[in-house]
């Protein structure tokens, strides 16, 4: 049962917890394998940090309130909305943006599949869609169409590229599966 409680004195804490801000201060981010130190306020979102402080504009700001998916990036490999995450909360995590996907000038198979299936029109939602698909394929190399739909359900596309996006994801999965050494 719940009860109303106590007014006992608190024991002193051995180590005081650092309280940061509200002014700018240093935060450390690892983005696409590179370390960065930023000088920002605690209220800085990951999205603003990426776009404005690091110049990584591949993640877009379509709504800034967790409703469109254009800001999707990977946090430790999982897709998240960068607009709903404080940059300061990303310390100690690995962030992947669309800029980190192509390796040595070679497009990632998901990127190639998006081009081949024409899974984009204006292209504004595309970085987010691609990262959502990549995260899915990393976790589940053999997705069904239903899995793909679930995986990109948080990425709106106002141009309506959806049918082609689904095809591109399945094509990429197939291509990845057929790659030697997998």
């Amino acid at each position: 049962m719940a009860k109303a409680v106590r007014a006992e004195p608190e024991p002193e804490l051995e180590v005081p917890v650092p309280v940061r801000g509200p002014e700018r201060g240093p935060i450390k981010l690892r983005v696409n394998g590179e370390k960065h130190e930023l000088w920002v306020e605690p209220r800085r979102t990951l999205l603003d940090a990426l776009r404005d402080d690091l110049g990584l504009t591949g993640a877009k700001k379509g709504c800034d309130e967790g409703t469109c998916g254009t800001c999707t990036v990977l946090l430790d490999g999982k897709p998240i909305y960068a607009c709903l995450r404080l940059a300061i909360e990303c310390e100690g995590h690995e962030i992947t943006t669309i800029e980190g996907l192509a390796q040595g000038g070679e497009l990632h198979p998901v990127q190639r599949a998006f081009i081949e299936e024409d899974a984009l029109q204006c292209g504004f939602c595309t970085p987010g869609q691609i990262l959502s698909v990549k995260a899915l394929l990393d976790e589940n190399p053999n997705p069904t169409e239903e899995d793909v739909r679930r995986a990109v359900s948080g990425n709106l596309c106002r141009c309506g590229a959806y049918p082609h996006i689904v095809r591109a994801a399945l094509r990429a999965a197939k291509g990845l599966a057929e790659r030697p050494g997998r």
Binding site: R51, L56, T57, G58, A59, K60, K61, T97, I98, E99, L101, A102, L107, Q111, R112, F114, I115, E116, D118, L120, G123, F124, T126, P127, I130
Partner: peptide
Amino acid sequence: VPRVDGPEKVTGRARFTHD
């Protein structure tokens, strides 16, 4: 023919006014 600006758009290089 696949879009000629596909590579720009899938890599995040495509520059929009927002960018």
